[in-house]
Amino acid sequence: MRSLLRLLIKNYPFLLFLLLEVLSIVFIINYNSFQRAGFLNSSNAVSAAIYGSYSRVAQYFRLAKVNNDLSAENAELRNRLDEYEAALLDSALLAHGQDSIFRYISARVINNSINKQQNYITLNKGRKHGIKPDQGIISAQGVVGIITNVSESYSMGLSVLNPRWSISAKLKNSGYYGSLLWNGNDYRKAELNEIPFHVELAEGDTVVTSGYSPVFPEGIMIGTISELSRPEGENYYKIEVLLSPDLKSIAQVEVIANTRIDELKQLKSETENAAPGN
């Protein structure tokens, strides 16, 4: 017994090494639960505050680009407003009784990465601004990510460049839908899966959100098809999509809050629990 103890004491660096490595592996494997715990990720008070003040300085260097983006978006919104006004004049009935399902909260990106295998995005708005987990993040150019963690005044989410989630996407022309997933290689490109061979496709086709999940409304831009092939022995196309927002230079985003999400969730659980025939 004593010699065993002596052996252990003599080899303590190795034991400590093993202990720390095992601890690290536990951290890696249980990543999601630690994420939820909320203090060991970048939406915690200290690191979010540091990133926040850094980004306040850094944003000055991007003001020109942000300005351009905003004015482009402004112009587009103005166009749409005109369309709506015209429609409203045509039929007051159509507009009556339709309230908006989606609410938009604008936020600034205070931290973002593109070169990891799992990329995250941190925003300067949080719970007190109405942000909750599972809300979508978009920019003027298109889909950016999804919120996963929220603290009092900051929030954090997975960006499109994160294989831990996929987006329900469809082809704007034909309406066929599939799932869009990033494969970890190029930050400008993602893969669209589950589109069968009989669908007619061409490079340059537009891919938008399907609206089948409550996260994004239908028809938000995702990107355009940049490459497609028909792999031998499979039933689905291999489609590469060029993402339309440039995630490397993203600064201003909007978070989409679905005001009827609770109702949808309740409906879903009722349907799933109800036995057929009852």
């Binding site: 090494f17 720390l20 490595e21 601890l23 690290s24 592996i25 536990v26 951290f27 890696i28 494997i29 990543y31 630690f34 994420q35 060991l40 990720n41 970048s42 915690n44 690191s47 540091i50 990133y51 990465s113 990891k116 799992q118 995250y120 954090m156």
Partner: peptide
């Protein structure tokens, strides 16, 4: 570093190594 870059456990593993 992990806490700041949301890679919990990865940098600590490599550093201890």
């Amino acid at each position: 570093i992990d806490v700041f870059s949301n890679t919990l456990g990865m940098h600590s593993f490599a550093s201890v190594f």
